[in-house]
């Protein structure tokens, strides 16, 4: 349901039948993954609420992404545009995040190699 940027996202329903073996069972029931129970702390107003399932979100962007993922068939033009923008923005952020991840992997690897070299060198 969250395909890569290059591919248009299929509707949730068709996606399920295509890839999920045990997919549909109990998926849309209340309390399932599609509609997890939410709690909003007292005194806080959610930045956005899904107009279809009333799920609250901390940011507009998450709500727009949610609409595209879970209610794709029922999107208005404005919601579709908001979803595409949100996806682009998230894609940019994701790119930076992945750069950090690659950096962290490199640092971890280098750190391990160094640690083993030093330890084995000292002992050897």
């Amino acid at each position: 349901m969250t395909p890569s940027n290059s591919r248009p996202s299929p509707s949730p329903e068709s996606d399920r039948t295509r890839t999920g073996r045990r997919a549909a069972a109990g998926r849309n029931g209340p309390g399932g993954a599609d509609a997890p129970p939410t709690t909003v702390p007292a005194g806080e107003t959610p930045a956005a609420r899904c107009p279809h399932c009333a799920r609250p979100f901390r940011t507009e962007r998450l709500c727009a992404l949610h609409l595209g993922e879970r209610h794709r068939a029922a999107l208005t033009d404005g919601e579709r545009a908001a979803h595409d923008d949100a996806r682009d923005a998230e894609g940019d952020e994701l790119f930076v995040f992945h750069l950090k991840v690659v950096g962290a992997i490199t640092a971890l690897y280098a750190g391990m190699v160094l640690a083993y070299m030093i330890v084995l060198g000292v002992q050897g």
Binding site: P36, P37, T38, T39, V40, R58, T59, L62
Partner: peptide, 8 residues
């Protein structure tokens, strides 16, 4: 940054 219930 989510409102999903912690217990869930």
């Amino acid at each position: 940054d989510s409102y999903v219930a912690a217990g869930f």
